[in-house]
Design a protein around this nucleic acid. Sequence first.
DNA 1: CATAAACCCTATATAATTTATAGGGTTTAT
DNA 2: ATAAACCCTATAAATTATATAGGGTTTATG
Lengths: 138, 138
Amino acid sequence: MLSKKTKYALHALSYLGRHKDEKTVLIHDIAEEHGISHKFLENILLELKKAGMLGSKKGKGGGYYLIKDPKEIPLSKVIRLLDGPIALLPCVSLNYYEPCAECKNEAQCGINKVMIQVRDETLKILENKTLEDILKIG
Amino acid sequence: MLSKKTKYALHALSYLGRHKDEKTVLIHDIAEEHGISHKFLENILLELKKAGMLGSKKGKGGGYYLIKDPKEIPLSKVIRLLDGPIALLPCVSLNYYEPCAECKNEAQCGINKVMIQVRDETLKILENKTLEDILKIG
DNA sequence: CATAAACCCTATATAATTTATAGGGTTTAT
DNA sequence: ATAAACCCTATAAATTATATAGGGTTTATG
């Protein structure tokens, strides 16, 4: 399951996407709209910023804003940043690969093979769906 | 990511599948083969038993055994039992549905729609792949 | 240039979940 | 009668997720 961090990130990005005609958006406004703690959201926005997914302007009148077109931000990128691996096992993760402790021979492991399939089908969706697809949100 | 519990369960079931000509298999043997704590594994086997996925025989000479053909046990069932929902969001879970706290209108939520797709593609695999597909393991 | 608004950064606290252990109870082959 | 082996419930330890705290820095504005 996606963590709250990731969900908040998606909601915040979606909010920024919907307000991209405005110069900047305040943390406060996003937090209020979604009932998230200001400070918790701040950490998330900072992480998104460090990852180059959004920009910010300091000082009075500052705030956050998208620096890319929403269709340039795949959901997989957001999920990986906040939640880590999308794969169901470390041994099939493309971005966070680790061998499975329990497993001696990955190449002939049936579990590994199934989880590669799951990963590929999942990524096929999450790498092609972008922020643009979730601008309209519940 | 799958929890250790689920991974251990898959390994244990796979082991039982590979030894299904033998009447019963000892917890001890499975635990040793995979370097799992005897007691931790015991809890997992009990859970699998309660769910009707395997049988056991008490007393001296007892142990665990599969009561179904490996191809009758889909991986989705094992994962759901030990890990809970397969879906990435509660609002798209078939077996553990809950509305998302952040969301007011599920029907028009873009995230919801994407996650339904992911769920469906994932299930297409995990409901059709069975224990039989993971008898050979790493 | 003083001020207040707003982001920036790091550390810590709390809660929840996962992982593991403990200890005794019950059944059964020999 | 005995020892092997599963059965059951409770609790402890470790890890991760969630949230809070507190001050630092930048900048528009009057």
